[in-house]
Deep mutational scan, measured.
Amino acid sequence: DTINITLPDGKTLTLTVTPEFTVKELAEEIARRLGLSPEDIKDTHNGKTLDPSLTLAEYGITPGSTITLEIK
C-alpha cells in the first residue's frame, strides 16, 4: 500500500507502508530518503501534527492518503 508525502517544495514522494507503521517509522523512512534527520521532520494530516507513537491506522491514514511534510 502506498501513501503520498507532500514535500515543502510541492513535490510528492510516494512511500510503501502498512497501516501498522508508526508515525515515527514513517518519519525515519522519509528522513532516510531525503537525507535528513528524523527529528527534523514534522508530519501533518488534515491540519493536525501527528504523534510519533501512534500508527497510521490510528489516524485513519489509508492507501492513497496524503501527508504533508514540514521541515523543523
Rank of each mutant, 00 (worst) to 15 (best):
P63Q: 06
R33T: 07
I61H: 02
K11R: 13
D51K: 05
F21I: 09
L26W: 02
S65V: 10
T62K: 07
L69Q: 00
T55N: 03
F21N: 06
V23I: 11
P63C: 06
Y59E: 05
T49Q: 10
E58T: 03
S65G: 05
E70Q: 10
T6D: 07
G60C: 06
E29V: 10
G60R: 01
T6W: 11
R32L: 08
L34V: 04
S65T: 12
L15G: 00
K48L: 13
L54A: 13
P52A: 13
D1T: 14
E39C: 15
R33I: 12
K72P: 09
K42T: 13
Y59N: 14
Y59R: 03
T14F: 07
A31L: 06
T12Y: 08
K42Q: 12
I61L: 06
A31F: 12
L34E: 01
T14M: 09
L26N: 00
Y59S: 12
E70A: 09
T14C: 08
N4P: 01
E25K: 08
T68S: 12
I3N: 02
I5A: 02
L50E: 02
I30W: 01
S53V: 05
P8S: 11
R33E: 06
T14L: 08
G64A: 02
T55A: 04
E20M: 12
A27S: 11
N4W: 12
K24R: 14
E20W: 12
L15D: 00
N46K: 06
L34M: 08
L26H: 00
I41D: 01
E25T: 04
K24A: 11
N46I: 11
E58D: 14
Y59L: 15
G47T: 04
E20G: 07
L56K: 00
G64I: 01
E29N: 04
E29C: 08
T6F: 12
I5T: 01
G47C: 13
D40C: 15
D43W: 15
I41R: 02
D40N: 10
A57I: 10
D40V: 12
T68Q: 13
L50G: 03
V17H: 03
K42R: 12
T22I: 01
S53Q: 10
A31K: 04
L26V: 04
E39K: 13
L7Y: 04
Y59I: 15
T55Y: 03
I41W: 09
I5L: 06
T22H: 01
F21R: 04
E29M: 10
P52G: 14
T14P: 03
D1L: 15
L26G: 00
T2L: 08
V17G: 01
G64F: 02
T16H: 13
F21V: 07
L34A: 04
L50N: 03
K48C: 13
L26Y: 03
I67F: 04
I41L: 13
R32A: 07
T49K: 13
V17M: 07
H45F: 15
L36W: 11
A27Q: 13
T14Q: 09
K48T: 12
S65C: 13
L56H: 00
E28N: 08
G64P: 02
G10A: 03
E39V: 15
P19W: 05
A57H: 08
T66S: 07
H45C: 14
G47K: 04
I67W: 06
P38T: 11
S53K: 11
E29R: 04
T62S: 08
I30V: 10
V23T: 02
T22M: 02
P8Q: 09
H45Q: 09
E28K: 07
P38C: 15
A31C: 11
T14Y: 08
L69G: 00
F21D: 04
N46L: 12
L56E: 00
L69H: 01
R33C: 08
T44E: 08
A27W: 15
I3D: 01
E58G: 03
I5S: 02
T16C: 09
E29F: 14
R33S: 06
P52M: 14
I71E: 04
E58P: 00
L56M: 03
L54Y: 07
H45W: 15
D51R: 04
T22Q: 02
T6K: 15
T14A: 07
P63H: 08
T62C: 12
T55V: 03
L69C: 11
G35H: 08
K72Q: 11
E25S: 06
P38W: 14
T55D: 01
V17E: 00
L26K: 00
T16D: 07
K24P: 00
I61T: 01
P38A: 11
D51N: 09
L50A: 04
G60W: 03
T49D: 09
D1H: 11
E20H: 11
D9R: 04
G60D: 04
P8K: 09
K11M: 12
D40A: 12
I3Y: 03
E25Y: 04
A31H: 05
T68L: 12
P52I: 09
A27T: 13
T66I: 08
P63L: 05
S65Q: 07
R32I: 06
K11Q: 11
P19V: 06
T22W: 01
T44L: 15
I30G: 00
G60H: 03
N4I: 09
I30H: 00
T18R: 08
F21M: 15
D9P: 02
T44M: 12
L69R: 00
L50C: 14
T2E: 07
S53M: 10
N4H: 12
I41V: 07
D51G: 03
L54T: 08
L7A: 04
T2W: 14
I71N: 04
L26E: 00
E58C: 07
R32P: 00
V17W: 15
E39S: 14
I67Y: 05
T22D: 00
I67P: 00
A57T: 08
D1R: 06
P63M: 08
T55F: 02
I41F: 12
D9N: 13
V17C: 05
S53H: 10
G10C: 10
I67A: 01
V17A: 02
N46T: 14
R32Q: 07
I71Y: 11
I67K: 00
E39L: 15
V23G: 02
T2D: 05
D9E: 05
L13C: 06
T44S: 13
E58K: 03
G35K: 06
D43G: 15
R33V: 12
L15Q: 01
L54S: 11
I5K: 03
V23A: 02
E25M: 14
D1P: 10
P38I: 15
A57Y: 14
S37L: 10
A57F: 12
G10T: 02
T2K: 09
I61N: 01
T6L: 15
I67V: 09
I5G: 01
G64Q: 03
I67S: 00
P38S: 08
S37V: 11
K24D: 02
E70N: 09
K72R: 13
D1S: 14
D43K: 15
T68P: 04
N4S: 09
N4E: 06
A27K: 14
I5R: 03
K42N: 09
P19L: 08
T55C: 03
G35Y: 05
G10L: 03
S65H: 06
D51W: 05
K24G: 15
E25I: 04
I71L: 12
T6H: 14
R32M: 08
E70H: 13
R32Y: 07
L26S: 00
L36Q: 05
L36T: 09
K72L: 13
G47W: 10
E25R: 08
K11D: 07
T66E: 07
T2A: 08
F21C: 11
T2G: 05
L50S: 03
S53R: 10
E25G: 04
T14E: 06
I5V: 13
L50M: 10
R33M: 12
G60S: 02
P38E: 06
S65W: 05
T16I: 11
D43V: 15
L15P: 00
S65K: 04
E29I: 10
T18G: 09
G60K: 02
I5W: 01
I67H: 03
D9F: 09
K72N: 13
L34P: 00
L56C: 04
I3R: 01
H45G: 09
L34W: 05
S53I: 04
I67E: 00
P63W: 03
H45V: 14
E28D: 10
T68D: 07
T66Q: 05
K48F: 12
D43E: 15
P63A: 10
D51Y: 04
T66L: 05
A31T: 05
N4F: 14
G60F: 04
L26P: 00
E28T: 08
D43T: 15
G35F: 06
S53A: 10
L36D: 01
T16S: 12
E58I: 03
P19S: 06
T22E: 00
P8F: 06
L50D: 03
L36K: 07
T66R: 03
T49W: 14
S53F: 08
T12Q: 08
D9C: 15
L15S: 00
D1A: 15
A57W: 11
S37I: 10
T14R: 11
E20A: 11
G64R: 01
T44C: 15
L56V: 02
P19A: 08
G10F: 04
K11N: 11
T16K: 13
I3Q: 01
E58N: 04
T14D: 02
T14S: 09
I3W: 01
T2M: 08
S65E: 05
T16N: 11
L69P: 01
R33G: 03
L7I: 05
S65M: 14
S37Y: 12
D1C: 15
G10H: 04
T66Y: 05
D51C: 08
E20F: 11
L56P: 00
T62W: 09
K24W: 14
T44V: 13
E39A: 14
K42P: 13
Y59G: 04
L54W: 10
L50V: 09
D9G: 13
T16A: 12
N4V: 08
R32D: 03
N4D: 07
N46R: 06
I5F: 05
L54Q: 07
D1I: 15
K42L: 15
T16M: 10
G47V: 05
D1K: 06
L13F: 14
S37G: 07
A31P: 00
P19E: 06
G60M: 03
L15Y: 02
S53C: 09
N46S: 13
T49N: 08
S53N: 13
L7P: 01
L69K: 00
S53E: 09
